[in-house]
Amino acid sequence: MFAYILRRLVYAIPILVGVNLLTFALFFMVNTPDDMARMQLGVKRVTAEAIEKWKAERGYDRPLFWNGAAAGAGKATETIFFQKSARMFLGDFGRAEDGRDIAREISARMGPSLAIAVPTFLLGLGVAVTLALMLAFFRATALDFWGVALCVLLMSISGLFYIIGGQFVFAKVWQLVPISGFGEGLDTWRFLVLPITIGVVGGIGASTRWYRTLFLEEVNKDYVRTARAKGLPETVIFFRHILKNAMIPILTGVVVVIPSLFMGSLLTESFFGIPGLGSYTIDAIQSQDFAVVRSMVFIGSALYIIGLMLTDISYTLVDPRIRLSS
């Protein structure tokens, strides 16, 4: 088991390096720092000095990969690649356009992101699995048919409409909750109820339908027939035999997103004015703050890779076939 995890970790490193190189190429080689400076400074005719100043302030005045002018190890370290990309591995993300330290900003914004993402994730999973189980139990009935139809309808609606519509109805018309914002302490829940509910409802159509197919796949398996031949009641067959088997693909499928919950939800956070990482990302994209976008790409991929590892590990935990044979 330990060797297995270690092996996965070893595999993860080249992928992270790949992500790093890719983003580096995207940010620094498609366009030169001069182009970025021109775009950031926004004026059509900026002076060369302004550009140089902008670059120097942010450390973009170094060579890309190799600094022949520097001494010793500085040949490799005094470069944009080392300063801007490689140092991310050490948790040093540099500064945003507004001069704030990105790493500190990220740690401060993690809490609010998690406050939305974790309950949304757990509730969404619970509700979808329950509904899917119900549809599968009443398979080939009118309930199943209309349930699936409703799922298709729900998944055909853009996530934006759930948010805009929810805000409009619950916060503006009925004034049950504040439209947006984020509070401190116990009062926070009033700000959280609506985004969480909308997050759950928005995701329910697709996941319920997907889980239902997983359940139905199990229903037709031979072991279910064996269970019936034993004379077990249908409820026992469903909750003991089918659920347990279908939960393996469901659980391992959702594990991969768990680490990414830290990243928060882009849309929800930005609409509800929640000071999390999702809205941070969106703000950075809209203000074209390359340093922040680069950092978020790096963190997002790292979290995804952790998710992949967790998936592998969770397989070994939930499936006895893998747990006991490795």
Binding site: D222, T226, R228, G231, I248, P320
Partner: peptide, 20 residues
């Protein structure tokens, strides 16, 4: 079922629940 009459099937590999 199971009390008066019981049945065994052709494919033992798939007829048992893999996770129980």
């Amino acid at each position: 079922r199971g009390r008066d009459m019981a049945m065994i099937f052709q494919e033992p590999a798939t007829s048992l629940n893999p996770v129980l």
